[in-house]
Amino acid sequence: MSAPTLERPAPDEAALQEQFDATVSAEHRIEPRDWMPEGYRKTLVRQIAQHAHSEIIGMQPEGDWLLAAPSLRRKAILLAKVQDEAGHGLYLYSAAETLGADRADLTDKLIEGRQKYSSIFNYPTLTYADVGVIGWFVDGAAICNQVPLCRSSYGPYARAMIRICKEESFHQRQGYELLMTMVRGTDEQRAMVQDAVDRWWWPSLMMFGPPDDDSPNSAQSMAWGIKRHSNDELRQRYVDMSVPQAEVLGVTLPDPELTYDEASGHYRFGAIDWSEFKRVISGDGPMNAVRIARRRAARDDNAWVREAATAYARKHAS
């Protein structure tokens, strides 16, 4: 049923751009079939895909404790959380697909190392306290990052984030509650909690990315309404939120320079080791190879399952 090929006036790019800009600046949403600048689309695909990869790879560090969780209640909570993260990944891949990406292709890019995921998931989870600290720090940082994204200019991304944010705050509270329970337990447990805090604090600050003067593309993303706050702003918000929580918990954040600055009303913190961050994100972290190998195995070792289902569907197509 192909339509006759008739001459059409060439689309007026300038008018389309104007309309796009007006939509974004009025805080209305851009939807999948709207005209959009190519750079906007590509940046979004990159951002959403790598966000999705982070959710999926993020299942592994805590997933490593699923079989050994020390109580049935903790096992159920952890299983539900890891399952939530799978859901987050799926919602996000789904948003990326509205922009013309293909999930299997994005997964290939992840496995081939051409697209990245959050560096935080390349650290090992050494004790069960890590499960609590990941909930508190990593899901907490995710909330700081994600809440502004609920207002992202791209509709499908913003809608996915609304749902995801609700679950992240649940995760953070669960993690914190585990730590509260542990610090009320034995001396050994308290030591485990402090040790986990010592290991995860700095990597969690790195989750917000390099300082603003080192983030050349941020201004464009802000103008497009797909980035709402600068890396440093979000990091500061996270530190301000975490310090009082640490006090209630009775743990020490491993930063001797951490002090409250009356004048600004913010906590000042020490210098971050960005060389470590760059090493880890570019593949040299303690667990990069393990994380990717597992994802690869899930894809490759089970390819026959996906093929079987496709073959069955073909045979039984009405």
């Binding site: 292709d105 990315g209 983030s215 593309n217 709402r228 994100i281």
Partner: peptide, 25 residues
């Protein structure tokens, strides 16, 4: 270029990260 607004942590968002699908995947 790294942006924090990748949910669970900063991810590179510069042009060095490919986005276009391979043919017919």
């Amino acid at each position: 270029s790294m942006t924090s607004e990748g949910g669970h942590g900063a991810v590179p968002t510069g042009p060095e990260v490919p986005v276009e699908p391979k043919a017919a995947t």
